[in-house]
Simulated scan of single mutants.
Amino acid sequence: MKKAMLTMVLAATACAATLPASAADRKLMLPIAGAMASNDAQGRLGDNVKFYFGDQPTPKVTQKITSDRTSQKTNSFGKTPETACNWAFLSAMLALKKKAEEVGANAVVNIVSNYKNNEMSSQTEFECHDGNIVSGVALKGEFVKIAQ
C-alpha cells in the first residue's frame, strides 16, 4: 500500500513539474460588435438600457446619476480566447445593465475597458485578459438618463 501511494505521489510530482510555472495572461483587443453578436447578447441585454462606448455620440444627457465599474471573469478552460472573452464581456455588460436598472438610468455612457484600473477607451473594441484557466473583462461607465 505504501509503495502504491509513493508511486502516485511521484507521478503527480512529475506531472506538476512539466506544467508552466506561471499562468498565462494575454491581453487581447476584441471587437465589441463580435461580442454583441454572440451568446444572444442583444436579446439578453434587451432594449431598456442603451450602451455607448468610449466617446460615441449620445442623445442629450438629461441627468447624470452615478458611475461604477465591474470586473467579470469566466472559465476559459477548453474555450478559444475569443469565446471566453465574449462570455466575460457579456457578464460585464449584464452587470452594467443591472446597476443601471437599480439606479434608474436608461443609459450607460463613456463605457471604457478598465482592467487593473488601466483605462482603454474605444468605440469599437474591448480589452480582455485571457489566461489558461480564467479570462476577464473589466468595464466602467457613467449611468445617466438620456432624452428619448
Rank of each mutant, 00 (worst) to 15 (best):
K27E: 13
G78W: 05
F77S: 15
A11C: 14
S76A: 06
G78E: 03
S135T: 07
T83P: 00
N106K: 01
L28H: 10
G131A: 06
E102M: 06
G46K: 04
S22G: 10
G131E: 05
N39G: 11
V137R: 00
K97D: 01
A11T: 15
S91R: 15
T18P: 05
D55I: 12
K79V: 05
V108R: 00
R44V: 07
F126A: 05
P81M: 07
A147Q: 13
L30C: 08
T80D: 01
N118Q: 14
F51P: 01
N106Q: 01
K73E: 13
A138S: 15
P81D: 07
V134K: 06
K3I: 14
Q148L: 09
S121I: 10
F126C: 08
D130T: 10
A88K: 00
S121K: 11
S113P: 01
G136Q: 05
N48C: 02
K27A: 13
V112T: 11
A41I: 09
F51V: 02
L94A: 10
K2H: 13
E101T: 07
D40Q: 09
A88Q: 00
Q72N: 11
A35R: 00
R69C: 12
A92R: 01
K140M: 14
L45Q: 03
R44K: 12
T74A: 08
S113Q: 04
N106G: 01
K97N: 02
S113V: 08
S113I: 09
I133W: 07
A4P: 03
S122G: 06
A24C: 09
N132D: 14
G78C: 08
T124C: 11
N39W: 12
I146R: 00
N132A: 14
T7F: 14
S38W: 05
A16I: 12
A23T: 11
R44L: 11
